[in-house]
């Protein structure tokens, strides 16, 4: 096992940040921690990178215990904290060279690892890091975390606040790194990114809701989900919530996701009910569940 977490708990003053967390990440796996802000993702990353000590439980990274093997872990992992943590007053090239130097290596030695990524920011290599766009900053940060050829990469919310184009490119890079045998633990608040991981842990309020492959998590979803749409979304939501057999009602983009608790649900009945209450342009159709549906079902 590349990363192994056993019954980790951690609290700060009154807040229980992590509550009995356990999971394992296999070598070469791309593992996602999916959850909103305040779920405990960053705390978990800090415990695994030896920056914090857990109140209870144990964890190891590549066989090194996070307490006893502190120096071994620090010497070998790649870590990209949630906040952009490079030197804004150094240029792209200077940042990269600096991080290579403190890991006792050179940019040239491991250039093959970062080449795909670095060529995209190379035209700006003499620009100060502070003057880069959000997407480029993330690429540079990833290069810096990779430059010493780590076996495990910890990426704490690398795509938060980055535009869709850069997010997509970033995930494509992660896939390529995974092919080079690097184990990657990545966290994100975006549910749609979960599908890109091998396995994911859904996490909220310091507890793991489920761990599985994204496909399995979606497949386990019990209820049939209906996309419902009508002329007035506000009234539609109120009416759906008032429908006697309603199980869950969540706005979901241009539709509202509706699930029913009874076995004998008929779309026509619901249609008639909505029409009777004055709604127009009613659309009701079954739709496949998403990670987000699963997350809400589990969190509720």
């Amino acid at each position: 096992m590349s990363i192994s977490v056993r019954n980790i708990s951690k609290s700060f003053k009154k807040v229980q940040a992590l509550d009995q967390i356990s999971f394992e990440v296999a070598q070469g796996e791309l593992f996602g921690l999916i959850g909103p802000d305040g779920a405990g993702k960053t705390t978990l990353f800090r415990i695994l990178t030896t920056l914090l000590v857990a109140d209870e439980g144990s964890a190891s990274v590549f066989g090194f215990d996070v307490i006893d093997g502190m120096n071994d872990i620090r010497n070998s992992v790649g870590y990209m904290p949630g906040k952009f943590s490079l030197y804004q007053d150094l240029t792209v090239e200077e940042n990269l060279t600096f991080f290579a130097t403190i890991f006792d290596t050179t940019v040239a030695e491991n250039y093959h690892l970062i080449e795909d990524i670095y060529v995209q920011i190379e035209p700006f290599k003499n620009r100060r890091a502070g003057a880069l766009s959000g997407g480029m900053k993330q690429k540079l940060a990833l290069c810096c975390a990779l430059i010493h050829q780590p076996k495990v990469l910890f990426l704490d919310e690398p795509t938060t606040g980055v535009d869709p184009v850069s997010r997509k490119e970033f995930w494509e890079m992660l896939k390529r790194l995974q092919q080079k045998g690097i184990t990657i633990l990545v966290s994100t608040p975006y549910m749609d990114e979960a599908a890109l991981c091998d396995r994911i842990a859904l996490i909220q309020d310091g507890k793991i809701l489920d761990i599985n492959s994204p496909e399995e998590i979606v497949a386990k979803h019990q209820h049939v989900i209906y996309d419902v749409k009508a002329s007035n979304p506000h009234q539609l939501i109120s009416l759906l919530k008032a429908y006697p057999t309603a199980h869950s009602v969540y706005p979901f983009g241009e539709y509202v996701h509706y699930t029913d608790q009874s076995g004998e649900f008929k779309q026509e009945d619901l249609h008639a009910y909505l029409a009777h209450n004055g709604l127009k342009e009613i659309v009701i159709q079954p739709t496949p569940a998403t990670i987000e549906d699963a997350f809400m079902e589990l969190a509720n």
């Binding site: 920056l51 992992v77 904290p81 991080f99 890991f103 006792d104």
Partner: peptide, 9 residues
């Protein structure tokens, strides 16, 4: 950046 420096040799 201190975080990164700590998680380094």
């Amino acid at each position: 950046t201190m975080e990164i420096l700590l998680v380094s040799p």
